Simulated scan of single mutants.
Amino acid sequence: MKAVLDDRQRVHDPKMFMANGTRLPNPEQPERIEVLRAGAEAAGCKFEAPTDHGIGPIAALHSPEYLVFLETIHERWSRIEGASDEVIPNIHPDRRTASYPRSAVGQAGFHQADTSCPISAGTWEAAYWSAQTALSGADAVMAGDRAVYALSRPPGHHAFGDLAGGFCFLNNSAIAAEAFLKAGLRPAILDVDVHHGNGTQGIFYHRRDVLTVSIHADPIRFYPFFWGHADERGIGEGLGYNLNIPLPRGTDNAGYLDALGIALRRIQMFGADVIVLALGLDAHENDPFQGFKVTTDGFARIAEAILNLGTPTLIVQEGGYLQRDLGANLTSFLSGCQRA
């Protein structure tokens, strides 16, 4: 199986995030790249570097205001006397239509949803090449590959059009789906991360040309809390083109596969030409976030069910954090893809 990775993704090296009012080591570490690459290679993947598609495909979904912010904010923040090494917001507007401040502090609050997306000197470069990795994976699928793995890091599915959050800055899966759409294909995004893909939902919520489906831990007591509930079906032309399947904490292989069957049926009825699979490996029983109880073998069964649809699939890496089974989980998933 073909795989795509750019080494410049390593330069984003966040040190901390806040959870429950406590400073904690940030789990979205560059080391994830090494573990995931080894896991993919163990499944027979051959990596190549991405092509630079420029800013256009990114700007098709993310506002230029937001992109300027991501590119420049760390340098501006660093000029503040006594500022932290990483850009972390301490104030947020009460609405997205609020006035746009000139200050770095105010803009950080406007464009960063939470304290889980600290911006350092290398964040923009890494996020840019993470998106280019997904776009190059899309190219390979359009060239005829049945399934392609894009090792995109930092991840993307919590990023809205002008808002970072949850370790995410540019929405790689959404950017790839838009590229498929512009090429004349009919894309569906299937998000199997343990956390709801709220940024992806937000980008396409009013649209009918991209189907968005997410299977995730019930957000009533789980990040991202405010999105991902079953009654969120889209608005306007997008009504009926968003499907959320929230599941109880601790859901195991059997419960997950039942939900996946519902998701795949919806994708079939959408008539998708291509699937963008937002792959989170954090549904595993040993993941630090402890949302689900999917086993390593369970990931192979999930992959087989998806690829058995016969629809070309771009696999874009989302979550899945450092623990002893992370690489084995990816090996299992990608091996299942190739057996299907």
Rank of each mutant, 00 (worst) to 15 (best):
S152R: 03
R153I: 06
P155E: 07
H157Y: 11
H157W: 10
H158S: 06
H158R: 08
H158M: 08
F160R: 13
F160C: 09
A164H: 06
G166H: 02
F167V: 04
F167R: 08
L170S: 07
N171L: 07
N172R: 09
A174D: 09
I175C: 03
I175P: 11
I175E: 14
I175Q: 12
A176S: 08
A176C: 13
A177W: 07
E178S: 13
A179V: 06
L181A: 15
K182F: 05
A183F: 01
G184W: 00
G184V: 00
G184A: 01
G184K: 00
R186D: 05
A188K: 00
I189P: 00
L190K: 01
V192L: 15
D193W: 01
H196N: 10
G197S: 08
G197T: 05
N198M: 09
G199Y: 09
T200Q: 06
T200R: 05
Q201R: 14
Q201S: 10
Q201V: 13
Q201Y: 06
G202K: 09
F204C: 11
H206S: 14
R207M: 10
R207Q: 15
R208N: 15
D209C: 00
D209L: 01
V210M: 03
V210N: 04
V210Y: 07
T212D: 03
V213Y: 00
V213Q: 02
V213C: 04
V213T: 13
S214C: 08
S214N: 06
H216K: 03
H216N: 12
H216L: 09
I220G: 05
R221K: 13
Y223A: 07
F225L: 15
F226K: 10
W227V: 05
W227P: 01
G228Q: 12
G228Y: 02
H229L: 12
H229M: 14
H229Y: 13
A230I: 13
D231Q: 11
R233Q: 11
R233K: 14
R233E: 12
G236I: 09
G236D: 14
E237F: 12
G238N: 05
L239Q: 15
G240E: 08
Y241S: 09
N242A: 14
L243G: 09
N244A: 08
L247A: 08
L247E: 03
R249A: 13
R249N: 09
G250T: 02
G250D: 02
G250M: 07
T251W: 00
T251A: 02
D252A: 15
N253K: 05
N253A: 06
A254Y: 04
G255M: 12
L257G: 07
L257F: 06
D258E: 07
D258R: 13
A259W: 00
A259G: 15
I262L: 15
A263L: 12
L264R: 11
L264A: 01
L264D: 04
R265I: 07
R265D: 15
R266Q: 15
R266C: 08
R266H: 12
M269F: 10
F270H: 04
F270I: 11
F270R: 04
F270Y: 14
G271V: 10
G271K: 10
A272E: 00
D273W: 01
D273H: 03
D273G: 01
V274W: 04
V274P: 01
V274K: 01
I275R: 02
V276F: 04
V276L: 05
L277F: 03
L279M: 11
G280E: 04
D282L: 10
D282W: 04
D282T: 12
D282S: 11
A283C: 09
A283P: 06
A283S: 15
H284M: 06
E285P: 01
E285K: 14
E285A: 14
